[in-house]
Amino acid sequence: MITKLNHVSIFVLDQTSAYDFYVNKLGFKVHTDAEMGPGKRWLTLTPPEQPGLEISLMSISAGMMFNEESAAAMRDLVTKGTFGFGVFECNDLRATYEELKGKGVEFTKPPTEEFYGFEALFKDDSGNWFSLGQKKT
């Protein structure tokens, strides 16, 4: 029986820049930051109130995982905003929207009311998009 999800990957163009975005703008916590050799880094973060879910910021570079052609194609797709990796949740969307917008986070959709609550869409510094939601109480 599967009980929970504990790791998920987000492909990013630059791990250092992504670290700044997720930690300093979104407020995520660093879980593991390990140098695995020159230019190789295992970097996982957790959402502020979900310490059991490690989000791995995976660099898109040619190597074991991607060949040169696949890495270039993947970088292109990420840059174009092809991938939506998930839905984040917050207590109060209006306040979180105001704060993140003030920190320079790019929203592609401002908060709107949906049948399940409120939702906005934002992009990370690579181009990956996320939904940010607030459940109706």
Binding site: H7, T32, E35, M36, S56, M64, M65
Partner: peptide, 25 residues
């Protein structure tokens, strides 16, 4: 421990995909 034996902190599936089979750092 992360510095000396980082592979204890990385799920094996990811480490293998990336070719990190030894504690290279």
């Amino acid at each position: 421990e992360i510095k000396t034996v980082p592979l204890r902190h990385i799920p094996n599936c990811f480490a293998e995909k990336k070719g990190w089979t030894k504690n290279s750092n």
